[in-house]
Design a protein around this nucleic acid. Structure first.
Lengths: 223, 223
DNA sequence: CGTTTCTTCGTGAGTTAGTCACAGTTGGTC
DNA sequence: GACCAACTGTGACTAACTCACGAAGAAACG
């Protein structure tokens, strides 16, 4: 009878579930396209939907009282947001913010439907729990990164992880500070240091990785 | 037929569930008593049991590569451990450590049984998810505390929160550093500063809060 | 009781990170 | 071209962390 809609193909763990409740909810779900920079949720909001991201990337971050902000993680295509899951399962209000970085195509499942499927459909439940549980480990690792105060190491790692295959990073110092939970000036100084060493070339909103080997060596022990 | 064992009374949300699977598992569960200082789990362990703490308190902490350690949270009587939940639901290995601080009485539910009840019994599932979801918020708050680097404010808050009604805190500087994720010397210096101000009196492993009003004022804006 | 050992606590010197204030640069827009 | 906004560079200062060492107290042991 019911067939799963095409968007579920992006989620292998959910594609083969034949539970009619799930099929029904999946078909009823609304699809949305958000332009880059849209606010997906904001601290203090109530949560109305479970969100599957089909295309694009969304940044989840916490704004601290001091005015500093820090990226907690990203939700990429084919993923779901753990904080949303947490709020749906445990109740309460959103404890962080999320903004689309690129244009995002997403599917929204109303909270009621989410709970209905979660209660009846083991496959769906397993998926949700797995994604959710994995994020606690990520947060603990983030905690480790923040308490260990080698910003230069973390910066080098970030550049290596996020540079294009050609060794290019398009990001302002402010954005990098935001990523690493530190201050813009600190990033500027470390980048200048890298530049002095001949490891990178700097221009406006642009960092070229010249000596990847040296950067890797700096990152060295820190995985 | 089956009755729930007495220990479930410590968990109001679970006491009224009549699901036979749950009743069965609850009765089959083994009770354990751990002396203070026992290791409950260790980073890298696989998880074999879901744990209900009936009496006592357990400290869950992360040991960083730098040698520093940091308390993530405590599991008190009547609670369960979110990291254990996370590992059971998402798989993988324990990402942190736990040690009993006082003698602990606990009930262990084998992983298989946990999954069985989790799948069949909505009441149990709701309980597990609620406890679990709440901890993400705690971790984010911890992240905020660590990045905002007013150790004196955090120290004052900790002393106020954890002092006895008589205003006494029994803890070494090393333990306090551990609690706040900072270095022992930093704690020592701030305490000496507090002492100079006449806010506390210091002796070995012992801090007496003399001027609670002043400490509260220092904590002030920070909730 | 005296000696040894372990933990706690105090402190100074040097390094790294964060804050504040301000100035120079670049790119886009009208 | 003028203007505005965002990006970048820098100096001075403060806070926190690290390292190194020493002193004082508690516990263990003969």
């Amino acid at each position: 009878m019911g067939e799963l809609p095409a968007w579920v193909d992006a989620f292998p763990e959910l594609r083969d579930i034949e539970d009619p409740v799930w099929v029904d909810v999946a078909n009823y779900a609304t699809e949305a396209v958000l332009p880059p920079g849209s606010e997906v949720f904001h601290e203090g909001d109530v949560c109305r939907n479970y969100i599957f991201v089909l295309e694009g990337a969304t940044r989840v971050y916490k704004a601290f009282e001091s005015g500093r902000e820090m990226v907690l993680y990203r939700v990429q295509a084919g993923e779901t947001c753990s904080i949303t899951t947490s709020v749906l399962l445990a109740g309460g209000l959103y404890p962080a913010n999320a903004v689309t970085e690129t244009e995002c195509r997403a599917v929204l499942i109303p909270a009621n439907d989410f709970h209905k499927v979660f209660d009846t459909c083991k496959g769906f439940r397993d998926y949700v729990c797995t994604v959710f549980g994995g994020r606690i480990r990520d947060l603990i690792m983030l905690l480790e990164a923040v308490t260990m105060r080698n910003v230069n190491v973390r910066l080098a790692r970030w550049l290596l992880d996020n540079g294009s295959s050609a060794g290019l990073v398009e990001a302002s110092h402010r954005e990098l500070a935001f990523e690493l939970g530190t201050a813009r000036e600190v990033i500027s100084r470390h980048l200048r240091e890298f530049q002095k060493n001949g490891w990178v070339a700097l221009s406006r909103k642009n960092i070229e990785l010249l000596d990847i080997k040296a950067l890797l060596e700096l990152v060295g022990g820190y995985r």
